[in-house]
């Protein structure tokens, strides 16, 4: 498993506290990139601009990813475009919200 896969796996542990669903299944993570030195860039969004969980979720991502072996610097790039929409959610997340 390379470092990008390890980071992607770790992001499943970051839960949106309002919805109780992890940010990967919610479709909030747009991409994970890494350079040769282990510096990580995570491009992600939130369900709505001005989400009160803004800082907390971004900080949570940094904390969790920092625990992954081989990771050096972490940069969370929080973006609003493309905007999140429900089609980005996994089937598991949809089931939890619609069930």
């Amino acid at each position: 498993m390379d470092i990008v896969e390890k980071v992607q796996e770790a992001l499943y542990d970051v839960i949106d506290p309002e919805l109780g669903i992890n940010i990967v299944d919610l479709g909030l993570v747009y991409g994970v990139g890494a350079d040769d030195e282990g510096n990580i860039t995570i491009t992600m969004t939130l369900t709505t601009p001005g989400c009160p969980m803004h800082d907390s979720i971004a900080a949570g991502v940094e904390h969790r990813v920092s625990q992954v072996e081989g990771v050096q610097d972490i940069h969370v790039d929080l973006v609003w475009e493309p905007a999140w929409n429900p089609s980005k959610m996994s089937d598991r997340a949809k089931e939890m919200l619609w069930g």
Binding site: V14, P17, E18, G20, S56, A59, G60, V61, H63, R64
Partner: peptide, 22 residues
């Protein structure tokens, strides 16, 4: 609950299991 959660658990998200707002 959101205010208190942010105060108490925001730094712990991603580190350990934290309660949801509910």
């Amino acid at each position: 609950p959101f205010l208190w959660w942010t105060h108490k658990y925001a730094d712990r998200i991603g580190k350990e299991k934290v309660p949801t707002l509910k």
